[in-house]
Design a protein around this nucleic acid. Structure first.
Lengths: 217, 217
DNA sequence: CTTGAAACAGGATGATTTGACTGTTTTTTA
DNA sequence: TAAAAAACAGTCAAATCATCCTGTTTCAAG
C-alpha cells in the first residue's frame, strides 16, 4: 500500500524529519479507511455502508478505525473531500492527454465525461447525493462540496477547451446539455441495459456540440 | 385518494354484494398502506422506509399492517405495481388533454415528462431504483416491472404522437434524448438548484425535437 | 344467536448498528 | 532507558429493526 499521503502539516521546516513516521502511518491508515468507505458505497450503497463493514473492508478492527474517525459522519466527510479532489484531478488528467491544437475536443469531452460518470468515484458520489435528499446532516456536508466541485469543473473546462471561450452562451448550453444527457444515461442504466440506441444518442450529442461550437448565437 | 368503498349499501347489486364489505375494507386498507409506503419513500428514502414508520404514517398498528402484508418486501412489491400503474395512467392522461390535431405535441411532451420526473411518484420509483443497484431482492422485483413500464410508455407515446410514426429512427432518438435530458436534469437537482441556464436547456431540447420531427434521416 | 373468519392491536425475540468504554502494542521524546 | 503519546483491539449498552406470536374486536354465514 503506497503511502503517498498529502503533506498536510509539513510547513517550511526540515524536510522529512518534521513528519514523523506515526503521522505518516496515521495518514495512510486514514486513506485506507476512506477508500474502504468508498468501496462500500459502491458495493453496498449508502444505507448499508456501516462502520462495521468499512472496518472489515479496510482490514482493521472497529475500535482501531474509531480511533482515527471517532464518528461515522467523520468518515463520510473525509470521503466527500477525497472524492471531490480525485474526480476533479481525474477529469483534468483525462482532458489533458491530447494537448494538440487539432485534437477533437468535442469527442474527447463527451467520451471523457461518459467514462467519468461510469467510474466508481461517480457512483460513490451519486449514492451520497441520493441519500442527502432525505438526510440533512449529509446534505450539509455534500452540497457545499458539490457546489465547489461544479465551479472548479466549469473553470477547468473553460481552460481546457479554449476554442469555446468566445462562444459565451453556447459554451454554457453545451456544457449543461452534455452533463444532463450523460448523467441521465448513466443513471438510467441502473434499471436497464445499454443498447445500440444509446450510442446513437451519444453520436447525436456530439453532432449538436459541434454545431454549438461552430455557430454564434 | 378517494377510496371508493362507501358503496356498501347503495349499490345493492349482485356485484357489490358478492364482494362483501370486508373485502372492500381490506382493499382500502391495503391501498392506505401502499400510499403510506410511497410517502415514506419520498420523505425518508428507501433505507429509512421501515415497517414501523409505514404503519405510523398509515395510522395503523404494526401488527395490523403485518396482517395485510406479512413481510416488508410484500409492501414494496405492491408499491412497485401501484407506481407502475399510476405513472403510466398519469402520463396518458396528461398527454391526452389536448387532442386537437394542431396541438403543440413537442412542448406538451417535454413539459409533460418534465412534470412527471418532478412528481413524487417518480421520486419514489427513483429511490427504489437506486436501492436496487445494491439489493438483489429489490432488483428482482423492480427490473421486470420497469422493463414493462418502459415498453408500455413507448407504445403510448407512439400512439399519442401519431405524426412521429413515419419518422422511425428520429422518433426513437427524440424519445431517448428527451428521457435522458429530463431525467438527468431532475436528478441533478438533488444537489443544486434550478437556474435560468436549465430553462435554456429545455428550450434547446424542444428546438431539436422539432428539427427531428421535421426532417427525415 | 352462535360460531368461524378476518381485521386489528401490541408485546416478545433475535439480529444489527452505533458510540463509549477499557486494555494492549508500538513509536516518539525527554 | 523510561515515560508519554499514538495506533490498534475488542467488549458493552442503548437503540432500532423485521418478524413472530398471542389476544381482542368486528363482520357474516348458518
Amino acid at each position: 500500500m503506497a503511502i503517498n499521503h498529502n503533506e498536510k502539516s509539513t510547513g517550511a521546516n526540515a524536510a522529512s524529519a518534521a513528519v514523523g513516521w506515526q503521522a505518516q502511518k496515521s495518514a495512510s491508515t486514514r486513506q485506507l479507511i476512506i477508500e474502504a468507505a468508498i468501496k462500500c458505497l459502491v458495493d453496498l450503497g449508502y444505507a448499508r455502508t456501516t462502520t462495521t463493514v468499512i472496518a472489515a473492508k479496510a482490514g482493521l478492527a472497529r475500535g482501531a478505525m474509531l480511533h482515527h474517525f471517532p464518528s461515522k459522519i467523520g468518515i463520510i466527510r473525509a470521503a466527500v473531500d477525497y472524492l471531490h479532489a480525485k474526480r476533479l484531478r481525474a477529469f483534468r488528467k483525462a482532458m489533458a492527454k491530447e494537448p494538440g491544437a487539432g485534437a477533437d475536443h468535442v469527442r474527447m469531452g463527451v467520451e471523457g465525461y461518459w467514462a467519468h460518470v461510469k467510474h466508481p468515484w461517480f457512483v460513490a458520489f451519486f449514492e451520497m447525493a441520493v441519500a442527502a435528499r432525505t438526510d440533512k446532516e449529509l446534505a450539509a456536508i455534500l452540497f457545499p462540496a458539490q457546489e465547489a466541485f461544479e465551479h472548479e469543473w466549469y473553470q477547468a473546462s473553460l481552460e481546457l477547451f479554449p476554442e469555446w471561450k468566445r462562444k459565451g452562451e453556447n459554451f454554457v448550453l453545451g456544457f449543461d446539455l452534455s452533463r444532463y444527457v450523460l448523467e441521465g444515461m448513466a443513471i438510467s442504466f441502473l434499471t436497464h441495459k445499454e443498447t445500440e440506441r444509446d450510442k446513437r444518442v451519444l453520436r447525436y450529442l456530439e453532432e449538436k456540440l459541434r454545431e454549438l461550437a461552430g455557430e454564434d448565437r
